[in-house]
Amino acid sequence: MVPAVLDQRRVERARAVAATVTDPELPMLTLHDLGVLREVALDEDGGVVVAITPTYSGCPAMATMRDDLLHRLQAAGFAEARVRVALEPAWTTDWITPEGRAALAEAGISPPGPAPRREGPVALSLSPTRRAVRCPRCGADDVALTSEFGSTACKAMYRCRDCLEPFDHLKEI
């Protein structure tokens, strides 16, 4: 089946192109490393369809991600490429790849720990979230949460009590 093999190569090539697109807010991460890029496939007409999952419902970067993907794919010869939104399952920080976590830490952003497991009603938590966070600059574990909300929807703000620098932590969802 020669056509099937050709299709497979096309998908692989498109996937390789899509995987190079970076997040507009976290440019050290590719959409693949962030876990936003969910699928690259062909539709019935042989057009490339890329599925992406929003990190947060109101994430304003989705339009840029879509445009960047189309731009890169069109430049690589996939003129008819489409981007579709995959809402289910919801994005989780567990999808960030080990390479992505390393890139975050390298850029001074503390990578997320394991996402909370949800079984039964979500428990109320009236004390600050406990996380095993280390300062991405000096490595100290004596850190304090400044705010659960940061410069983008996906980050919390911390400061290091050792080197005194503030830093972002990608929060677990």
């Binding site: 809402l87 289910e88 919801a90 004390s127 969802i173």
Partner: peptide
Amino acid sequence: AVLRAVAAKGVKELTYHRDFAGR
């Protein structure tokens, strides 16, 4: 399926909102 997906996503966000306000 659409409402279900919005809800599943919203649960994660609202958990932060409730905890923020509760604290």
